[in-house]
Amino acid sequence: MDRTSLKDQAKAELNPNFSYYLRISLPALLLTAFVALVPFPLNENMHRAGIRVVAHGSRRMMTNGYWNNIAMWQTAVTFIGLLTALLMIGVSFAMIDGLRGRSDHRFSWTQMFKIFERGEYFLGSLLIGLLQVVWVSLWMLLLVVPGIVKGLAYSQAQLIYRDAIDAGQPIGYTEAVTRSRQLMYGHKWEFFVLLLSFLSWWLLELITFGLASIWVIPYRTMTLANFYLKLTEEQA
């Protein structure tokens, strides 16, 4: 699968409709910025406060205050990260519709929160994501590389699940993961290299303090959606 063609086709869909795709990506972009920027200074400040507490010999105060605050923020960041991932899955759904010529590119709140458009979308994406995390983590306990390979193999599960629902042939959560593994057979390296090809864009996001994400995240998401689309077309 030619990476240049995938990216060119993604840009051909994204660029003339950028305003639409940016608006439906906006909640996820804002949450991504929050997760990236807010926790670090708070944790750093709490760490300094913890050091001051220890210096004054009050271990109890440190336990009840410092560590409770850390736990609270870690829980909040985890929840926001999960919500962001689900919103981006919904954006991928909308982008696949655009690539398939099924979208009129008219902005609506349902497109912005497409993952909640149907209960099956939300629940399926959430539970499949949990399965992916558990199974990849178990593989990681063996070695890092097998965990990465399995992560690549399971990467298309939510998209497969959604297509099955839309086709009126719903499947189970584990079946979606199994079909993703089958779909990605012989294509995991292609997908890995495609992800690596965005390394320079990730660096651009970093040096621009996330400002480049306004274009890079929709572009990357559209390209990955196009990868899934071409893969399913090839194996149809």
Rank of each mutant, 00 (worst) to 15 (best):
P218S: 09
L123A: 07
L131N: 05
L138T: 00
I160F: 08
V149L: 07
M112L: 04
L152G: 01
S197V: 13
Q111H: 05
A85S: 08
E117K: 12
K150N: 03
Q158I: 08
R179I: 07
Y219Q: 12
L159C: 02
F198L: 11
K150E: 05
G90W: 00
F122A: 04
F116L: 15
R118S: 09
Y173S: 02
G124R: 09
R106E: 11
A212H: 09
S103C: 03
L206M: 14
F116W: 05
D163W: 07
Q182A: 13
L86I: 09
G172R: 13
G172A: 12
L83W: 13
W202P: 01
S125A: 15
F107T: 05
Q156H: 08
Y173H: 12
Y154K: 02
R118I: 06
L99Y: 12
F116K: 12
N226C: 08
F93N: 03
G124P: 15
L196V: 13
A164L: 05
L87V: 11
E175C: 04
F209I: 14
A164T: 10
S180T: 07
G124T: 12
I89V: 15
Q132E: 09
M222R: 01
W189F: 11
E205L: 08
E117S: 12
E190P: 00
L195F: 04
S92I: 11
Q156V: 11
L196R: 10
F198Y: 15
I96E: 08
E117H: 13
I171H: 13
W201H: 08
T208H: 11
R102M: 09
P146T: 01
R118L: 13
K150G: 10
E175D: 15
W135C: 06
I89A: 02
S180L: 07
D104G: 05
A225S: 13
T223Y: 05
R162Q: 11
A153R: 02
Q156S: 09
G168P: 13
I217Y: 10
L123E: 07
Y219A: 11
L87C: 11
A94S: 07
